[in-house]
Each structure stands twice: as structure tokens, then as C-alpha cells.
Design a protein around this nucleic acid. Structure first.
Length: 279
DNA sequence: ACGCAGGGTATTC
DNA sequence: GAATACCCTGCG
């Protein structure tokens, strides 16, 4: 008799510490998809898993033995997000966003995957970003099997560096193709050392990233926050820009929000994008 | 049918 | 700083 999924599940954390929809839909990642039952299935760190809520907890299936080595880190479970969030709660627009953002976590994603994904993201909408990333993985990633279906890992930089622009034609990613290959080459050769940037000053990291073609302030900041996990980084996209114009003082400096400014950014982004839903 | 925006970037004026 | 081209989709 084979073990049931329920028996194989691994406890991640309490449900109030990780809100799946908010975390996976707040724009930081592109490979998690919600299923009919509300659970999420995705590929990260070379593994396919399902994440779901039950009895007030969040569990995963599909990653036996990977909790300590992979998922505890990926879901950033060692940081007390609630106390950081509460520090943003209070008067004003940000207070509202923070109240609305309970359970949002900033994932510790693969650095190269984040850089590559955000290069793809420029001037694109989220469904198309997801489609291009998925095609990239199908074409050049490694095949995985999970729950009887095929999934694909995100191809490492070395794999992409070996390709030509025409190899990326199936992605239909337009003018971004040379950016992707160029960045892959720099990362694969060690010319751009993402490990080093992860432990460097975030301003230095952003500056180095912006030396890549096709990487401006926005993409660099997203990579610094979501790929290098510098929580102080505050990417400004059209949604954040709109929110800043409408709800913050003219001379507002996001870095005044402190070491977790990036988390505040996620609260604002999710609130703005979800239509400013009432709490 | 097009025209245009969609989590930008680089170049130019 | 503002204007423009860059590739491609999907929406009105």
C-alpha cells in the first residue's frame, strides 16, 4: 500500500504566518499556480511541490527531506514577519496596506532565476511573463515528474549562456532575448557574481546589476529584493509609482522605511493591485 | 480593424 | 526631464 499524500505532508508553519495567495500573487515570483482547491503547485529550487492549508497550518507535499535544506530557507521561515508588519501598521495609506498584507512573505528565490525573470518582466504583463518563463523552462530546464505530471526546472545560467538569440525564438520574448543571453553569460562566467552581491551592500549590488544590458533601476531593484533578499530595496514600478504619487508626500523617501522597506513595498503593491480592497 | 498598454531600458534631444 | 523605439500579446 502506498502512503497517501496526507501522510507525506510536511508542516511549514501556521497559516497566519504565510498567506499563500498574497505571497504568490504579490508579484515577486512567476512559477506558482493556484489550483481549483486553493492550493498552489510550483517549481522552485529544482523541485516541484504542492503547498496547501489545513487545520490552520500550511503544509507541503512533494519535498520529503527538503524542509531543513530547502523550504525553511525558501519561505524565509526564520524571520518574524508579523512583528515587522506591525511596525508598519498605523495611520495613513501604508498602515492600510500593512493591515491588508498579513501573511505576505518575501521568498528566498534562486538568484539567477530572479534576475532572468525580471529581465523578462519589463514592459510585459504578468500572464505573459509567466508564459515566457514557463516556455523557457520547458525548452531548456530539466524534466521533473510530480503527481504524475511533467514539470521543468528553471534552466541555470550556464545552459542559457550556451544559447543564441534564435534559440530563444520559441519564447516570443522579443527584444529581451539578447538581454537574457548576455546576463546568463556574465553570471555563468562569474563576471557577475550573484553570491557575492547577495552579501554585498545593496547599493553596490544594484549598481553592478545595472551594468548589464537591459537591466535598469526597476529590474535591478527587483533582483536585489527578490533574488538577493536585500529587504531594504524598494522597487518602483507603475503601481508603486501611482501609489506614491497619490498617497505619499511629494518628497517621500522610501529608504526612510528602514531595513524592511522592501516588505512595505510588497504590502503597497498587493494592496494597490488588488484594487485597494477593504479590510 | 488597429491602437495601445503591459511591474522598462537605452538613446537622444 | 520628456520623447521615442524596441518585441510581442491581448484587449477595447
Amino acid at each position: 500500500m502506498i502512503a497517501t499524500a496526507a501522510e507525506n505532508r510536511i508542516l511549514l508553519c501556521a497559516q497566519n504566518e504565510l498567506h499563500l495567495e498574497k505571497t504568490f500573487e504579490c508579484g515577486q515570483c512567476f512559477r506558482w499556480n493556484q489550483m481549483e482547491d486553493g492550493s498552489y503547485v510550483g517549481v522552485a529550487m529544482g523541485r516541484a511541490i504542492r503547498v496547501f492549508c489545513e487545520d490552520g497550518n500550511v503544509y507541503i507535499t512533494g519535498g520529503p527531506g527538503d524542509f531543513e535544506g530547502i523550504w525553511r530557507d525558501y519561505f524565509d521561515l526564520d524571520l518574524d514577519y508579523e512583528s515587522v508588519r506591525l511596525s508598519f501598521c498605523g495611520e495613513g495609506y501604508l498602515g492600510k496596506c500593512a493591515e491588508n498584507g498579513a501573511g505576505i512573505r518575501i521568498l528566498r528565490q534562486d538568484r539567477w532565476e530572479a534576475l532572468c525573470s525580471f529581465i523578462i518582466s519589463q514592459c510585459n504583463n504578468i500572464p505573459r511573463i509567466k508564459k515566457i518563463v514557463e516556455t523557457l523552462c520547458e525548452c531548456f530546464g530539466d524534466e521533473l515528474e510530480f503527481e504524475g505530471k511533467r514539470f521543468y526546472t528553471f534552466p541555470d545560467a550556464g545552459r542559457i549562456a550556451a544559447l543564441s538569440v534564435s534559440d530563444l525564438a520559441p519564447l516570443r520574448c522579443g527584444y529581451r532575448a539578447p538581454y537574457i543571453i548576455n546576463a546568463a553569460g556574465k553570471v555563468a562566467s562569474g563576471d557577475l557574481d550573484l553570491e557575492l552581491l547577495a552579501v554585498s551592500d545593496s547599493d553596490f549590488a544594484r549598481k553592478k546589476l545595472m551594468e548589464l544590458g537591459g537591466v535598469g533601476a526597476k529590474v535591478a531593484n527587483c533582483t536585489v529584493l527578490f533574488g538577493l533578499h536585500h529587504m531594504h530595496a524598494f522597487p518602483i514600478d507603475v503601481w508603486i509609482s501611482r501609489a506614491l504619487k497619490e498617497h505619499f508626500p511629494k518628497d517621500f523617501d522610501p529608504s526612510s522605511l528602514g531595513p524592511y522597506a522592501g516588505l512595505a513595498q510588497q504590502y503597497i503593491f498587493y494592496y494597490a493591485r488588488s484594487g485597494g480592497v477593504k479590510i
